[in-house]
Design a protein around this nucleic acid. Structure first.
Length: 587
RNA sequence: GUCCCCGUAGCUCAACGGAUAGAGCGUUGGCCUCCGGAGCCAAAGGUUAGAGGUUCGAAUCCUCUCGGGGACGCCA
């Protein structure tokens, strides 16, 4: 189904064209306040200014000229020249039935021009535990990937894992020492504690010169692809994956091992990247390092700022790897849009990366490059989120605690459920709360992390959303006991009876799901989606309080059953498909 | 020093250039013979850090000031 705002925009703009003799946007938006109706057209004031006429008069003329009687009640002109639109009950009903029939997509159209979209997110470091610093990239990136998937684009997820570099020398040397029979019995190696493994290797490397020397040799052998060294390296990567893949699973993240394209993948392309940039005259030597100087960037002395792609000792850097990756994504993956989800501190790096890639001619104006940034997670003290002792908070510990706290709540509210079900609810609520709290914030703001708030049963939280869903499911379960056959009442339903304000408010939100998704997708802003879902859940709660469903009189009941069904499906879709947060039939 | 992000109710946060800036928490007061009260209704609470400017219209765009965070040559 076409987006309602698009239809209204088109109809009103056409009328404006007829009245003023030139094109001007109608600027249709959901109404700022219910008393102004359901939608409003804001474009009259600007258009009137342009053609030097009275905006209210223009609005009146446009209202007279536009044809929307099939959608809206007679429009009203208000204030300085707003056109206020109120949906007809008949249109609303038709729209709801259309959404009901479109079980797959809930009436949300795909993008008109599907594109190949690369989304680069998560990027954990091999041989280190995932910590809270990885959380936002992982979940925001995953939501963006899901949104683009749903819009019908070809999404290529890229997990740019940190699986290469000099630190692997000491890791490989340490692995050899720990598991001397590794090559004969690869399965014998099990790194129980990644963090300890890394720390021990580093300690040894710092303290023991002969070990450090061996580590440096391993780096050389790694770069030269010695089979034995490569085998051990692969073991370390595989072992690390055993630690982070379960975290993706518990977070309900769509990344798989197939999406991994780490730094190692580009290792052999780096020399060529530098060579190509040199040949093109873009890379020059400066203080012994090879640099690109993109236009418009200055350092603290006002001198051109270098984008260093090769150190004076000959080693490559992450700038080089990122250039290789970008070239690969455009030339081999045929990406038309590349989205990087990393924290805001890397903004300058990506600006320079994009500029350099454009200078090299790898990226032209048909290709969209986006750096989707986000702020820092803060503790209750307003400082970056740390453990009490000042250490980094491991993601696993964070999620465990959230689930633990959720479990206590379930235990209190619903002690009689089977233990296994309580555990499952606790997982869905705990992990959902962590994710939802992140999504609900404007990603650019720093935000204060609080278990108490995110697990609160009131307010814009995962538990509130999950509760709204569970209540609908409860109604549907109870239907059978009251001899209400939902399928029978909904099948072949061809008209609705929307009488109560709470019914109409809920209906009007249900037909706006597409608009919320579009806004979230265009701006890479999951909080537009959570905010819509919260409005929807609230509207449902009001409806639930005001309008009995199962005991309603015959002409009302099918409509209310439909509203319940669509609300449940919309919440389920938004939460589960787009945000990766589980819904529960009972909690 | 230059650049980037942020500054909105007591607290945590919304607001896709539009009308009287919205939620939740907290505070105060209502609502359970009825589908899950993990709910609903209502009240109080604001010079959108400040000053200019652009615009028919600014929390939003521009300039400056103040405050917080961050980036700025061989880490990622």
């Amino acid at each position: 189904m076409r987006k309602l705002t698009d239809i209204l925009e088109e109809r009103i703009s056409a009328a404006m064209g007829a009245v003023i003799g030139k094109n001007a946007p109608a600027l249709v938006r959901p109404a700022a306040d219910a008393k102004f109706g359901d939608y409003q057209a804001n474009g009259m004031m600007a258009a009137a200014k342009q053609v030097k006429t009275n905006p209210r008069q223009l609005a009146e003329n446009v209202v007279a000229a536009m044809e929307i009687a099939d959608i809206c009640e007679p429009p009203e002109v208000a204030g300085p020249g707003f056109i206020n639109l109120r949906l007809k009950d008949s249109f609303l009903a038709e729209r709801l039935l259309g959404i009901y029939r479109d079980a797959e997509r809930l009436g949300v159209d795909k993008a008109e021009t599907p594109k190949i979209v690369v989304v680069d997110y998560s990027a954990p470091n091999i041989a280190k535990q995932m910590h809270v610093g990885h959380l936002r990239s992982t979940i925001i990136g995953d939501c963006i990937a899901r949104l683009y998937d749903f819009a019908g684009h070809t999404v290529i997820r890229q997990n740019h894992i940190g699986d290469w570099g000099t630190q692997f020398g000491m890791l490989i040397a340490y692995m050899k020492a720990q598991y001397p029979h590794l090559l004969d019995h690869p399965a014998s190696a099990q790194i129980a504690d990644l963090e300890a493994f890394y720390q021990n290797a580093k300690q040894l490397s710092d303290d023991n010169e002969s070990f450090a020397k061996q580590a440096r040799q391993e780096v050389v052998q790694l770069h030269n692809h010695y089979p034995e060294t490569m085998a051990i390296w692969k073991q370390i990567v595989d072992q690390s994956r055993q630690h982070y893949q379960p975290i993706y699973e518990s977070l309900n993240i769509t990344l798989t091992a197939d999406d991994e394209r780490g730094e190692s993948f580009y290792a052999d392309q780096l020399a060529d990247v530098v060579a190509e940039l040199k040949v093109k005259g873009l890379a020059v030597e400066s203080d012994g390092a090879v640099c690109v100087f993109p236009e418009g960037f200055k350092n603290k002395d006002g001198q051109p700022l270098p984008f260093i792609i090769q150190k004076s000792d000959g080693a490559f850097l992450y700038a080089t790897t990122d250039l290789a990756a970008l070239r690969f994504r455009v030339q081999d993956l045929k990406a038309e849009t590349v989205i990087y989800v990393t924290d805001a501190r890397q903004a300058l790096h990506f600006q320079m990366l994009f500029a350099a890639a454009k200078m090299a001619g790898w990226v032209d104006e048909r290709i969209t490059l986006e750096h989707v940034t986000f702020g820092t997670m803060l503790g209750a003290d307003g400082k970056p989120f740390k453990t009490r002792t000042g250490g980094t908070v491991k993601l696993k510990d964070l999620l465990d605690e959230a689930v633990e706290r959720a479990k206590a709540v379930v235990e209190e509210k619903n002690p009689d459920l089977p233990a296994e079900q309580k555990a499952q609810i606790a997982r869905a609520v705990g992990v959902g709360a962590v994710k939802y709290a992140d999504y609900a914030n404007n990603r650019n703001s720093d935000y204060v992390f609080s278990f108490d708030r995110m697990l609160s049963l009131d307010g814009n939280t995962a538990p509130y959303m999950q509760y709204a869903y569970a209540r609908i499911k409860s109604i549907q379960r109870k239907a059978a006991g009251k001899e209400v056959d939902i399928q029978n009442e909904l099948n072949g339903l061809s008209a609705l009876l929307l009488t109560e304000p709470a019914e109409k408010d809920l209906a009007k939100l249900l037909v706006r799901y597409d608009q919320a998704i579009a806004a979230a997708t265009e701006e890479y802003r999951p909080n537009y989606l959570t905010s819509y879902l919260y409005d929807l859940a609230q509207a449902f709660s009001r409806f639930y309080t005001a309008c009995p469903v199962l005991t309603a009189q015959a002409p009302h009941r099918p409509t209310r059953l439909l509203l319940c069904d669509l609300t449940a499906r919309t919440i389920r879709h938004g939460l589960s498909e787009l945000l990766g947060i589980e819904v529960l039939d009972q909690m």
